[in-house]
């Protein structure tokens, strides 16, 4: 197991409260966990359990009321807004349920965008974007616009955009929600492969079948981590002949 310090994402006693007084809502209560390189962690829970809040905080899009969120050892709060924005362009990749591609840009332009925003020269950015598209298996669709792609293809572009420039933290919010089950599975296979290649992934989902691709599953209820599964040896389980 990796030492705690090597975690790509670390949340320590993170609490997020929305509103004040009578309308106060605790979206997260003292949540702690880490995600290491090579690891995919799934977060499961019913709607309103705090899954999306957790991901928003991990991505530096929102700040905790108390506790700390660190990405690659850096406390996001200490970075300030500009530093966090830079972190999002260089270290954190986001994958959404509805893909969030820019319709006026073609596939390669969508993928190159975060690099170009970060000041990378167009030619270099395009080359990296091309490599990322190849990696997710749609290098031949580089000049296609999102409207002319299937949902699965658009999500592949989104994953390429999330990993371009060797970003090591991938945050996926119900990435298979808008896809049929076969396409969804191929997206999970990609996320899994990316984590196996050294990235750290957080997958928010309410589908057990999809969460099962993760190394660990964290269960959230009312903003609290109520349980977590590790990974038992599959062979032992099958050999015993009794799955339960």
């Amino acid at each position: 197991m990796n030492a705690p310090t090597s975690a790509v994402l670390r949340m320590d006693a993170v609490t997020r409260v929305h509103g004040e007084g009578a309308t106060e809502v605790h979206a997260l209560r003292s949540v702690s966990f880490g995600v290491h390189p090579g690891e995919l962690v799934a977060v499961m829970g019913p709607s309103g359990s705090g899954k999306s809040t957790l991901l928003t905080l991990a991505g530096g899009l929102d700040s905790p009321t108390s506790g700390t969120v660190s990405v690659e050892g850096t406390d996001l709060e200490g970075l300030g807004a500009a530093g966090r924005a830079r972190m999002r362009r260089t270290s954190i990749g986001y994958v959404f349920q509805d893909f969030n591609l820019i319709p006026a840009l073609n596939a390669i332009e969508n993928v190159a965008l975060p690099l170009e925003l970060d000041g990378v020269r167009t030619r270099t950015a395009r080359a990296a974007a091309r490599a990322a598209l190849d990696e997710v298996g749609i290098g031949d669709l580089a000049t296609r616009f999102p409207d002319h792609m299937s949902g699965g293809q658009q999500q592949r572009v989104a994953i390429a955009r999330a990993v371009v420039g060797d970003r090591r933290l991938i945050l996926a919010d119900e990435p298979t929600g808008a896809l049929d089950s076969d396409t969804g599975e191929s997206i999970l296979r990609l996320l899994r492969a990316r984590c196996d290649a050294g990235a750290a992934g957080v997958l928010v989902t309410h589908e057990a079948r999809h969460a099962a691709w993760a190394d660990r599953v964290v269960f959230l209820r009312d903003g609290v981590v109520v349980d977590e599964t590790g990974a038992d040896s599959a062979e032992v389980l099958i050999d015993s002949g009794t799955p339960r």
Binding site: R209, A211, A212, F219, D227, T229, S233, I238, P243
Partner: peptide, 20 residues
């Protein structure tokens, strides 16, 4: 319920790993 959910989830993770 939660105890069972965790146990079944672990089994599901194992099956998924075997599938891969």
């Amino acid at each position: 319920i939660q105890q069972q959910r965790s146990a079944t989830m672990s089994a599901l993770q194992d099956y998924t790993r075997l599938k891969r």
